[in-house]
Structures are given as structure tokens and as C-alpha cells.
């Protein structure tokens, strides 16, 4: 057990160290990225404060509660930048150029390699701001925040990360057959933007789509409701169920897809 844990920690260390070092090779790019991160965050906060400048509400949500949704969105956006985008968008390139061969020949789960190989530091500010915003919005919330709701909220957050990751990985897996699916993965990233605001702010049709067809609601709104103690246990259960189902689908779908891998010709 100890050896296995040590093996994975050591492998992750080398994965992320080399990913980080690669980013620092280009100094100008580092400055541009830092500037972009600050600009993006300032923009998000500015738009939200505009919405609430007259003391109005959005889909029945107060400014503080919407701030919770935004904080979770910002946190997920940071995580996407750190791991999902640099790793999962690379799968398509690996399939197209045939470099997936080298990954499949390594004695490690290929899904793990493809999901965690690169660590891009540009999402860290968003993750930190997301956490800070969450603490700030919860501390100003009108409702009483219990330890239980914080604990369940963290579980919901994990569940939302798993749902987002699994959906993205399933889409990227289709590149084994269709090779170029960049656009599809970009669509998914754009959909995440819809989770920036409370799901109840959208028309009822879109709300149903975002809950049951594309589980955007489970990415930001449901975790926010759980944090502020306003969610029903049905949604908590549904979120965990969706998380488990999507993760299992992503694992089995990847294994199934590899049977059809033909590798790029030399």
C-alpha cells in the first residue's frame, strides 16, 4: 500500500514538476498569462456587481448567494485551467500525431496519465480567489451555515469536478474514432460559463436542459445551494449518482475505445 502511494506521488511529482518547468521556459508567456488571469477575475467581479448595483436579485438569488455560485465557478475554472484543459485537450493531439502510442506503452493507467500529466500553474490564482470568495460569501450569508452543510458542500464540489472531468474525458475519447474533436471539447468549456450564474436565473426550458441533459446545474448551482443549506437531499443524491455514473462511463468508454485505436500511420 505504502509502495503504491509512494509510486503515484513520485510519478505525479515528476509529471507536475516537468509541466511547471515547461511553462517557465518562456518568460514573456508567463507575464502575459499572469496579466490574463488578473483581467479575467476583475471582469467577472465587475459584471456581477453591475447586476446587483440596484439591490435587485437574480433568479431569486441575493448578491451574496450569487457570489457563492461565482466563487464555485471561479474555483472550477481554475481547476479546468490547471488540469482539465492542458491535459484533456491534448488527447486529441496525441491521437492525431500518434504519440498516444508512447503513453499506452507505459506501465501506468493511460487514463491517469492523460488526465494528470500536465499541471499548468495559471489556474492557481482562480482557485485561490474562488476559495476566498466562497469563504467571504458564506460569512456574509443571511442563512446560518452549519458544519454539515460545509461538509456536504465540499462533497458536492468534488462531485461537480468529477462530472465535469468525466464529460470532458468522454468527449475527448471519441477522438479515437473521429480524430478531430477540438470543437466539441471547446463547446463543453463554453457550457461551463453558463454555470457562472445561478441556474434559476435561466428560463425554465434551459433550466431543465442544464439539469438533466447537460448537468451544468450540478457543477455550480447545486453545490452553492448545499453550502448555504438550501438544497434538497434529492439533488445531493442525484449529484453524487451522476458523478459516479459519469466517472464509470468515462473509464469503460476509454477501455472500449482503445480496442479501435489504429494509431497514426508512420
Amino acid at each position: 500500500m505504502y509502495r503504491t502511494i509512494h509510486y503515484y506521488l513520485n510519478t505525479l511529482y515528476w509529471f507536475w514538476y516537468t509541466g511547471f518547468s515547461s511553462e517557465l521556459e518562456y518568460r514573456l508567456n508567463v507575464y502575459v498569462e499572469i496579466f490574463a488571469v488578473i483581467g479575467n477575475l476583475t471582469g467577472s467581479l465587475f459584471v456581477l456587481s453591475m447586476f446587483y448595483s440596484n439591490g435587485s436579485t437574480l433568479g431569486g438569488w441575493t448578491f451574496n448567494n450569487s457570489l457563492t455560485v461565482l466563487s464555485i465557478y471561479t474555483f472550477l475554472e481554475g481547476l479546468t485551467t490547471c488540469f482539465l484543459h492542458p491535459n484533456l485537450s491534448r488527447i486529441v493531439r496525441h491521437v492525431q500525431h500518434g504519440t498516444l502510442d508512447y503513453i499506452l506503452l507505459k506501465p501506468i493507467q493511460s487514463q491517469l496519465w492523460l488526465s494528470l500529466r500536465i499541471f499548468s500553474p495559471w489556474g492557481i490564482p482562480s482557485i485561490l480567489v474562488g476559495i476566498a470568495l466562497l469563504i467571504y460569501s458564506l460569512s456574509r450569508s443571511a442563512s446560518l451555515i452549519s458544519y454539515m452543510s460545509i461538509f456536504l458542500g465540499i462533497i458536492m464540489l468534488l462531485s461537480s469536478i468529477v462530472i465535469l472531468y468525466s464529460l470532458w474525458f468522454i468527449l475527448a475519447t471519441t477522438s479515437i474514432w473521429f480524430v478531430k474533436v477540438w470543437n466539441a471539447t471547446e463547446v463543453l468549456r463554453s457550457l461551463l460559463v453558463a454555470g457562472r450564474y445561478p441556474i434559476s436565473a435561466y428560463p425554465s426550458m434551459l433550466r431543465a436542459v442544464f439539469t438533466f441533459l447537460l448537468p451544468i446545474a450540478f457543477l455550480t448551482s447545486v453545490p452553492s445551494e448545499v453550502f448555504i443549506g438550501q438544497s434538497s437531499s434529492f439533488y445531493v443524491f442525484l449529484s453524487i449518482l451522476f458523478g459516479c455514473i459519469f466517472l464509470l462511463i468515462s473509464i469503460f468508454f476509454w477501455r472500449y475505445a482503445l480496442r479501435f485505436y489504429t494509431s497514426a500511420s508512420s
Binding site: Y7, N10, T11, Y13, W14, F15, Y17, T18, S21, S22, E25, Y26, H97, G98, T99, D101, Y102, L105, K106, P107, I108, W113, S266
Partner: peptide, 27 residues
Amino acid sequence: LVMGQKQQLIWDLPPLDSFFVNAAVYG
């Protein structure tokens, strides 16, 4: 498997870094 037309080394880093990644993966 070595393929003359494809590479596994990390393009922007010295080969030593790629070797240590492989060493970790192979335990």
C-alpha cells in the same frame, strides 16, 4: 518501442527531465 519519426522527449526541457519522468513511471 522506438519510432524514428515520433518522439517522447519533452520538447522544451532537457532530456534528463524526460528520463526521470520515465524512471518514475517504471518505478
